[in-house]
């Protein structure tokens, strides 16, 4: 076991990990932040997406031990970053039904958040590309895309 410190949503966590444990596994099972989902554990579904030093990555493909010293942001931190209120993306997903079962939703929102931070006025195609590696088995892509575009409009109006 290796003792490491992870900085997740600005909080520090001391955890003991084995080298082959994924960041997704450690965040869920050892830290207890289960908003990050693990659907495939091999980088093919997008559910475990989080921001690592500001970039979206699949946390199932990242060794936890290799995330020391990184700034990790998960779905649990999104509200907090937005002064404790739902982020416009979250609000849009709620209002526009950008989900059914909700399992892909945290990953979709994280990927979309990164997109909108770098491209506040994306085209529909750019939105689809940003979530290109994410699956929604309920097939709610129409409304996921709509949620992201609507959130972008709200954010542009607000800034």
């Amino acid at each position: 076991m290796n003792a490491i410190n992870l900085k997740i949503n600005k909080e520090h966590y001391d955890v003991l990990v084995k080298p082959h444990w994924s960041l997704a596994y450690v965040i869920r099972e050892k830290v207890g932040l289960t908003g990050t989902k693990t659907g495939c554990e091999m980088g093919t579904c997008g559910s475990c997406t989080l921001l690592l030093d500001g970039k979206p990555v699949f946390s199932c493909l990242r060794m936890a031990i290799d995330a020391q010293g990184c700034d990790i942001r998960t779905i649990e931190g999104v509200e907090e970053e937005n002064n404790g209120e739902l982020h416009p993306l979250q609000e849009a997903f709620v209002q526009d039904h950008g989900m059914q079962c909700g399992f892909c939703t945290p990953g979709m929102i994280i990927a979309a958040k990164h997109l909108l931070e770098h491209n506040p006025d994306p085209t529909e195609q750019e939105v689809r590309e940003a979530i290109g590696g994410h699956l929604c088995r309920c097939g709610t892509y129409i409304r996921i895309v709509r949620s992201i575009l609507n959130a972008a409009a709200v954010m542009r109006a607000g800034s």
């Binding site: 932040l33 289960t34 908003g35 649990e76 997903f93 039904h97 989900m99 939703t105 945290p106």
Partner: peptide
Amino acid sequence: SLPMLDAYEKVTGKLKYAGD
């Protein structure tokens, strides 16, 4: 088209599936 009752839990990652 009212929002789903558990939409808030879903968009915040708070909804507990069996594995959670």
